[in-house]
Simulated assay, not measured.
Amino acid sequence: MAVGTLTTVPVPAPRVIDRRVAGGAMVLAPLAAVPLAAACGLVVAGGNTIQLPALATAALALGVVALGSRGLHLDGLADTADGLGASYDRAKALDVMRRGDSGPTGVATLVLVLLVQAGALTAVGPFAAAAGVLVGRCTLSMACARGVPSARPEGLGATVAGSVSRAAAIAVGVAAAGLSTLVPGLPWWRGPLAVVLAYAVAGALLWRCTQRLGGVTGDVLGAGVEVAVAAALLVLA
């Protein structure tokens, strides 16, 4: 479920999708995203090797990640921004998020977050680029931790909301902070700081969406990933 939902890597469909499977998939999200992170790092390494313009290399790296994830999280970011900007009425905001189009608020938010990600990618090496992609996916377990409600009774958000134990969500964050000390070419503290800021930004968005929408949706989860990636890359840069 983790690989099939978060990447385009072909895998068999899960035989059962229940709360246990959904929670496990969100905990394993960073491992499922390893191919995406590796692809991002390879593009950065290749672009640096053949001396492509840094911004072009960054754009290609982000394009590969978007292609490898079906643009799932980018779509969620745009829809969430449209919903939050559309109305203070919960039902109207959720209705806007359900539509397939993107309004000016969603497009502007998408462009600005991608600009931050691309700008940061111009100043990092391949290992830091890969780390930023993975850190963003680590925050999914926090967004699906027990106690976080679903904004709708159906959809991906309803399937995964509250499916991860708080202990497991904390363990993912601690593991991410610990492993990030090993990112080559950076001082040991830079990786953990990136994890902390990524979790703080994603947590702030999660809090806002819970207050405004009554809980999380699949779009909110995707938005959290993208803003967390942007925050992590900024620190790593």
Rank of each mutant, 00 (worst) to 15 (best):
A228S: 13
G125F: 14
A198R: 04
S87V: 06
G215N: 01
A169K: 11
R15D: 11
T105D: 00
P35T: 01
L74M: 15
P187G: 07
A151P: 09
A204Q: 12
R212S: 02
T49P: 00
P35K: 02
S69D: 04
R20I: 10
L206N: 01
C138Q: 08
G103H: 07
A61M: 07
S163C: 09
Y199D: 08
V111C: 15
L77H: 05
S102H: 15
G178D: 13
G47Y: 08
L140I: 15
V113C: 05
L42W: 11
L52Y: 11
G68E: 12
N48F: 04
G185H: 02
A171Q: 10
G100H: 15
I17F: 07
G76C: 03
L114W: 06
P126W: 14
A37F: 06
A45S: 06
R99E: 08
V183M: 08
T210A: 12
W207G: 00
L193C: 12
A223P: 00
M26Y: 12
D95C: 02
R19E: 14
P53I: 07
L186R: 10
G157D: 04
Y88D: 14
Y199W: 14
T105G: 00
D89Y: 00
A61E: 04
R98Y: 07
V195F: 13
N48M: 12
A200T: 14
L140E: 11
A161M: 04
V65R: 13
V107G: 12
A78F: 05
V16L: 13
G24M: 09
T7S: 07
V21N: 03
V164L: 08
A202R: 14
